[in-house]
Amino acid sequence: MTAVLAGRLNVRTRAFSVEEVPTPRPGPGEVLVKVEAAGVCLSDAHLIDGTLTPLHLPGDTVTLGHEVAGVVAEPGAGVTRWRPGQRVLLQAGEERGGVVWTRGVDYDGGWAEYAVAGESTLVELPDDLPFEQAAIIPDAVSTPWAAITATARAEPARPAGVWGAGGLGVHAVQLLRIVGAAPVVAVDPLPDARERALALGADVALSPGDPELPALVRAETGGAGLAVAFDFAGVPAAREQAVACLDRGGKLVLVGLTDQPLTIADGTAFSYFQQQVLGHYGSADEHVGQLVELVRRHRLELSRSVGGVLPLAEAQEAVDRLLRKEGNPVRLILRP
């Protein structure tokens, strides 16, 4: 093997192409992984369109893909834990010199036939977990899980709302049920997304365009409002609407990314009711490990999250399909 396919982005020109690159080699403490599945995330699309820019990338070009699962192909020097043939997923990033680098952003990711990963960033997979489902656990599932358990500290039998029931938000609905939040309210402008949220465990699904939405949320919660509201949409109007639905002491957790300012329409009421706004980004290694264990124990099921599988050569089509919301997919998967 002298050359393999990889989806490469020039972050200076924003030119993206699937092209042949030299086969990567694992260095000391690294593992070469044969990629079996890689998720297509909206942040990948935003890297291509210029909305996002890497912070630590040493050059101009990077292989995209931070949601990756595959098989160990070759352990590097000094690696004793991993052996060829083991089924693994890759953490979405790693710490280097006290700074967190993101795979597929700051260094080469998994839109490729092979990927190199630090040995500590591999997580072993159960034999019965398909690669397509495993690949999306880092980020698509782990980000909402970390937001729910670490940032919001959502509690059993306490109301929770999810604004944006797409790639991350629909998993938040499932995960809120796991921690016992009740009721779980999903808010999304797309009828298909609302139906999917109900199918995956939301107690009620509402349109943000409904002028009665805050009243409907309070009726569903016995007049109190939400203990926690999650913004997975990154839309200022969604954030303002979510604040209007909070209970006394309620928390708004910002997960969806936007460069737009955050505004609180009634600052006096926000302070009087001792409400909070909390920022959230990504997840830690332990969150991915927890989710793999939940899947292993059949507490979490992700088959409905895979909206389609495309060959790596059609990566641009997968991005375009995601942006068009064609078929309303939770996640599209690339298969080298």
Rank of each mutant, 00 (worst) to 15 (best):
L9I: 10
P336H: 07
V11I: 15
D49N: 15
R96W: 11
V116G: 03
G267D: 11
V288E: 01
E19R: 10
G222N: 10
E30M: 06
G50I: 07
I137C: 10
L129Y: 06
A269S: 14
A224Q: 14
V62I: 09
E124G: 09
G327W: 04
L125T: 09
V4H: 05
L216F: 08
Y107Q: 09
V99H: 13
P75Y: 09
D259S: 13
A227R: 09
E67I: 00
L175N: 02
G327H: 03
S17Q: 14
A172Y: 06
G76W: 07
P156Q: 03
A6E: 05
W145L: 03
R103P: 04
S271P: 00
E20P: 02
P84I: 04
A154S: 15
C245W: 04
A182C: 12
G256I: 05
D188R: 02
E30K: 07
A15H: 13
N10V: 00
Q290E: 15
G76V: 05
D127C: 01
D44T: 04
L55V: 13
Y107P: 03
P189K: 08
T2G: 14
V204G: 07
Q241A: 14
A227D: 15
D128S: 12
E301D: 13
E195M: 05
L57D: 07
G29M: 09
G308F: 05
K325G: 11
V71I: 15
A315D: 05
L334Q: 02
V11T: 15
E293Y: 04
P156M: 02
A157P: 00
A193H: 13
A152Q: 08
A219G: 12
P208E: 10
R304N: 12
G104L: 07
A238D: 10
I136C: 08
A150Q: 12
D259K: 11
A284P: 00
K325V: 10
P138S: 09
E286G: 08
G256M: 05
S17M: 10
T63Y: 04
F273Y: 14
A265K: 12
Q91P: 00
G327I: 02
A69V: 07
H56F: 15
G225F: 03
E36F: 01
Q241F: 00
W101Y: 15
D320K: 08
E195A: 13
P22T: 07
R304G: 12
R25C: 09
D247A: 15
V309Q: 12
G29R: 10
L52Y: 15
N328E: 09
E74I: 04
